[in-house]
């Protein structure tokens, strides 16, 4: 069983700082493994526990510093790691990112059975890269995956948590899964140990290695672009009252009534 685990390093969205000009401050913001990808990794490692001869190859696209994150995943029990990195990949939207990662998987792990991604990345929150990868590889996809029900060497059975309920599906390989959060924190010991993980080679894969043209990757290869970015500022006129309970009740009543009157 060969698994491609796709992960992303993201800025910690709980640690966002703004400059005086209301632009995002990039320096000094900590980078973390996208929280949804931690659950994707847990899911892949669960499969490795269940099925013998499972090999997990982690793929990430990003700058050199993402190696630290890959080392940690190797220490958790993943077998190989690939860093897809080239300055020409910068500025990629979900289309170009999906195309680049799909090409890396096609090149380095052509006989994969499963691709596992996190459902969302907390920075962009598009939920698009997974399905884009599946589309470029023309394989089946199962999104919003919650639990592993059954797995063997031919197929996998999982539950999906959707808007209107829970669906149970079975699919034969090859397939791409997008994993939701679990109801518990991922808490695996570093079984391979940091020391072992440091010894492993991280494969660096650039534009040449993928055989893609510069105009097909990064900002150039992206159909979408950001024309404007601005801070989300509320248009509600914040008024705060510190009153006695009686006065608070009166104020609350007045405000509710004013809405009721408008509707009448």
């Amino acid at each position: 069983m060969k698994i491609a685990l796709c992960v992303k390093q993201v800025p910690d969205t709980n640690d966002i700082k703004w400059t005086e000009n209301n632009t995002l401050q990039r320096e000094g913001v900590e980078s973390i493994l996208n929280p949804f990808d931690a659950y994707a990794a847990e899911f892949a490692l669960d499969i490795k526990d269940k099925l013998k001869n499972t090999e997990i190859t982690v793929f990430t696209m990003g700058p050199n510093q993402a190696q630290d994150m890959l080392r940690k995943l190797l220490a958790l029990g993943c077998d190989n790691a690939v860093l897809i990195s080239d300055r020409k990949f910068a500025g990629a939207d979900t289309y170009a990112t999906g195309k680049t990662i799909a090409q890396a998987i096609k090149t380095l792990l052509p006989d994969f059975d499963l691709i596992i991604c996190g459902q969302f990345a907390v920075d962009g929150d598009t939920a698009q890269t997974g399905p884009c990868i599946a589309s470029f590889l023309d394989i089946a996809q199962v999104t919003y995956v919650k639990e592993l029900v059954n797995i063997d060497n031919k197929s996998i059975e999982v539950t999906r948590e959707l808007d209107d309920g829970t669906e149970r599906v079975k699919v034969t390989y090859p397939v791409l899964l997008c994993k939701l959060q679990d109801d518990f924190e991922p808490s695996r010991p570093l079984i391979n140990g940091i020391k072992e993980a440091l010894k492993k080679e991280i494969r660096i894969c650039d534009l040449n290695c993928l055989g893609l043209e510069p105009e097909n990757v990064g900002l150039k290869g992206s159909p979408t672009y950001v024309s404007k970015a601005f801070r989300n500022i509320s248009n509600h006129n914040a008024q705060k009252y510190e009153l006695s309970t009686e006065e608070s009740v009166k104020l609350l009543d007045e405000k509710i009534k004013s809405v009721e009157v408008k509707n009448a």
Partner: peptide
């Protein structure tokens, strides 16, 4: 919706066009 977000990127990639989510 969960269905729309499953479907849309599949279509946009195959059409080689851009998609803005949510």
């Amino acid at each position: 919706t969960t269905q729309g977000r499953d479907l849309a990127p599949r279509i946009s990639s195959a059409l080689h066009t851009g998609l803005t989510a949510d």
